[in-house]
């Protein structure tokens, strides 16, 4: 082991020990500390309001398939947080992703570099055939994940990632497979514009950007949760297109 590595090890170890120490320290009275593991008291947190879906209105019990016209109709609380309560953050987040994709495009400078095709031999028959079989299934799975994002674990990001994975696999397996730049751009910008458009519509009709302007329906039903599914669809297309774009750029560079 080299000397420098040793120093790095010692320093990180010291750092880690100091940080870990914070978890075992006995708090003084009145001092705010971390909870022990598994002892998170969410009753006193904002989380409780999200769970009750009552940041603005009074506290009501939310019951599966019964409660109607809630603040946010999504059965998945995380989705509520991501695509409703904090959807402005999410807009920023996909902007970051977009910027990363754009940055990769700039860094790799595809326009100027000689476009070398993925020069490997044809991939193995098993992979090729498997992917041929898997590709539509993956697309389907992805679609399911983002369409049911407000009901079950999942959502736009996850669904988009699955879709992008499908395209990645396709690109890996099939040398002749090529996605047109223009189609990616088209999908991505349409998705982005519709996200912003939904927000602007909320701004115009309800007076606040990204405010829910549709009926939220009954908790647990597919057609519920107001604009959340719409936003998630937009996000899914955008993320899927961006990730595909990134993968495509990396492969082609």
């Amino acid at each position: 082991m080299k000397f420098r590595n040793l120093i790095a090890l010692v320093i990180t170890a010291a750092f880690a020990l100091i940080i870990l120490q914070a978890f075992t320290i006995t708090p003084a009275a009145g001092e705010i500390t971390l909870n022990e593991f598994g002892k998170a008291d969410i009753n006193n947190r904002t989380a409780q309001l999200y769970l009750n879906k009552s940041v603005n209105t009074d506290n009501k019990k939310v019951i599966y398939q019964e409660s109607k016209n809630l603040e946010s109709g999504s059965a998945n609380i995380v989705t509520s947080v991501v695509a409703n309560y904090r959807s402005f953050d999410t807009l920023g987040e996909i902007t970051v992703l977009f910027l990363a994709a754009a940055g990769i495009g700039v860094v790799l400078n595809l326009e100027n570099s000689k476009k070398k095709k993925f020069a490997a031999d044809d991939s193995s028959l098993i992979l090729n055939t498997g992917i041929k079989l898997l590709f539509p299934l993956l697309l389907l799975a992805g679609t399911y994940i983002f369409v049911y994002g407000h009901l079950s674990p999942g959502g736009g990001f996850q669904g988009g990632a699955v879709i992008a994975t499908a395209f990645l696999l396709k690109m890996l397996s099939d040398n002749k497979f090529e996605i047109k730049e223009i189609s990616i751009t088209l999908v991505e910008s349409t998705a982005g514009i519709s996200f912003v458009g939904l927000g602007l519509y909320g701004l115009v009709t309800r007076g606040s950007f990204l405010e829910n302007f549709m009926a939220t329906g009954t908790v647990g039903q597919l057609f519920s949760a107001g604009i959340i599914p719409l936003i998630y669809i937009a996000i899914a297309f955008k993320v899927g297109a961006e990730l595909t774009n990134i993968v495509k750029n990396l492969i082609e560079a």
Binding site: A40, A47, V62, Y64, N76, S80, V81, S152, G220
Partner: peptide, 19 residues
């Protein structure tokens, strides 16, 4: 998990922190 579904049909059930 903080999802209201048929297994946990109410927000009264114990959920982990969604934030």
């Amino acid at each position: 998990a903080p999802i209201i579904n048929s297994v946990n049909p109410s927000n009264a059930a114990a959920f982990v922190d969604p934030i």
